[in-house]
Write a protein that binds this DNA or RNA. Structure first.
Lengths: 353, 353
DNA sequence: CTGAAAGCGCTTACAG
DNA sequence: CTGAAAGCGCTTACAG
């Protein structure tokens, strides 16, 4: 192995192959017409010298602009979760804008399937070079995926996965395993005959499969660890939310020591705070601003969190790597399942979330 | 706000200021002699148009190479921890090598202070443009820091902090808070009169302050939460390690329900596995390969982990941002304190660790 | 104190 | 099928 004295560039290749730079370029990127003979020769020399194009020079010289589209739910005061992936996307945007990447964002309403139809159509007609999208509405998302495939636009799923599609990659959570881990945490606090209440907010229909996976994860944990206490599930629909207080109170018994909310927990926490939490351990999801308040004051014991900012960031970077750097992208990318408590939330507040 | 139709470049500035590109360059980077008048003019125009240099072009045109030095402990089979920061450093290296960054690594032995002296001298004589180093030996590290300051070489602390130095930045853990969090986890398992055993391995003298901070964190947690069970500390020195089994056995009582090892737990876990762990909750540090084995088989309940790979990665990127991009660097960067269990370790095994 | 020119390693019309 | 030349947005001697 010789010291790589001065990296080999396209000029070296051209000289050694007795051709011009333009020809080397044509061979390398399959543009234009080159004789098989020169083709061979150039490729061999590239391989021999382990030629790696200088990506800086490449991007500088090329006037090609890559246009990416992002299609995700809009964040709401009620559920600010989607702020975080968006933040990650914007962080990535800053990093790649010098490389000729332009990103256009489209937002849909989780409670309104028509908004998804409308926005996804917009995306399609804008004809982008790559797409990051959250496939929360199952049937419509599959349709959309297939249209993307058909137009040969690479697309990446974020937050939710549709396993049988032809997506480039998935960045998100393992919902089942998150619930399973929540089971472990809860089990530390339970006694032999304690009861557990699992609460699902059914108002965001699109998210419902997530909630079910989480519940199943927790129930499986208990089953596998021979826990025989009573476990109750409660599905709260939108029109019941105003009566949350009565509903929850009615379901919490003397023996209930565990409360698992399969999504954002702050609404419940607010009610519990009024009545006092007693011996209850409360688990919820996602380190959003409203949840944080109740984590800080001790009503919520743990939040499970799956790096929403990182999901957004990595999705964009994956498209960048794929389109610009021609790198191979890993298809499945599960985020770490983070356990956040009053004692460690401080270090999850910045861009690391 | 006008659409930023075609980013403004140095050519636009030059034209508008009625000077040459070279002069703009001189103004921007304080090289050479420029009249105050033109200086003013150029700066104003830059500000007005919000000129942002194209870093790609900058790096491509410049033949300046930045040489960085890394000085960290070498990883050992006994304690492979330092593999992980090194991995992060190498990840960063790949990302910045196209930008003319060269990294040279120096390793010292945590059990041999002379090796630190020797290697740090090497670093200094190589006269790098920036340094990342782990200041594990207190006195020697302060000396070294001061020499760096004197030579005007920016340096970044990784893993440990020396608060009063003139370092550019710190990337690492909050050891105290990690112990505090471990206290919370343990408390979920303790009963009123349970006992807790805290184990410190004193064989790596350089790490001892870390261990003490962790112990203090845990003890403070218990104090603040009115826990009155007995807490015992045990410091094990190198020559006692072979008798680990007897020592630990002698200290574990019927009432002991918590065992906190302030560093790598696998050696203890191996002994406990032989005798059976009973009702013990065992907490240790760092998701290293030997620890993982005992996390998987249930001997270790939780590992506290502070993103060693990320520490290494971000340290290098910070020097890059500082030297090449002239960005401001945040001085204190604490990593998230991660709680890792059998149920979520899977997603911490790749580069995210 | 200032500018013209060459060059960094590529891509991209254009001409043949 | 192939090459010469211009250009991407900067930096860097060199000359004055």
């Amino acid at each position: 192995m010789i010291e790589d004295n001065e990296k080999t560039g396209i000029n070296d290749i051209a000289r050694l192959a007795n051709v011009s730079k333009a020809t080397v370029d044509r061979v390398l990127y399959n543009r234009g017409r080159v004789s098989d003979e020169t083709r061979e020769k150039v490729l061999n020399i590239c391989k021999e010298l382990n030629y790696q194009p200088n990506i800086l020079a490449q991007r500088l010289a090329s006037d090609k602009v890559y246009r990416l589209a992002v299609l995700i739910p809009k964040s709401t005061p009620d559920n600010p979760y989607w702020e975080y992936p968006l933040k990650g996307i914007e962080n990535a945007e800053k990093e790649v804008e010098n490389y000729g990447i332009k990103i256009k964002k489209y937002f849909y309403d989780l409670k309104d399937i028509r908004s998804f139809r409308k926005e996804s159509l917009q995306v399609l007609t804008s004809d982008p070079d790559g797409i990051v999208f959250a496939p929360e509405f199952n049937r419509e998302s599959i349709e959309f995926s297939q249209k993307c495939s058909h137009k040969k636009i690479p697309y990446i799923f974020i937050d939710s996965n549709l396993p049988k599609q032809n997506h480039l990659s998935y960045f998100g959570q393992d919902t089942y395993q998150g619930g399973y881990l929540a089971g472990k945490l809860l089990s530390l606090h339970l006694k032999k005959h304690s009861e557990v209440l699992i609460l699902n907010f059914a108002n965001e229909l699109a998210n419902y499969p997530h909630f079910m996976d989480r519940e199943k994860g927790m129930r499986d944990y208990f089953t596998e660890h021979n826990y025989h206490g009573k476990i109750t599930s409660l599905n709260i629909s939108p029109d019941q939310e105003t009566e949350l207080k009565e509903i929850v109170k009615g379901k919490l018994h003397r023996r209930t020591r565990g409360l698992f909310i399969t999504s954002s927990a702050h609404k419940v926490a607010r009610q519990i705070q009024k009545t006092g939490k007693g011996n209850l351990m409360i688990l919820g999801y996602d380190l959003t601003t409203p949840n944080l308040k109740y984590l800080k004051n001790g009503i919520i014991d743990f939040l499970i969190c799956q790096k929403p900012v990182t999901q957004g960031y990595l999705s964009i970077m994956a498209l960048f790597d794929h389109l610009v750097q021609k790198k191979d992208i890993q298809k499945s990318n599960f985020m770490p399942i983070e356990i956040i408590a009053k004692e460690n939330y401080q270090y999850y507040l910045d861009s690391n979330i």
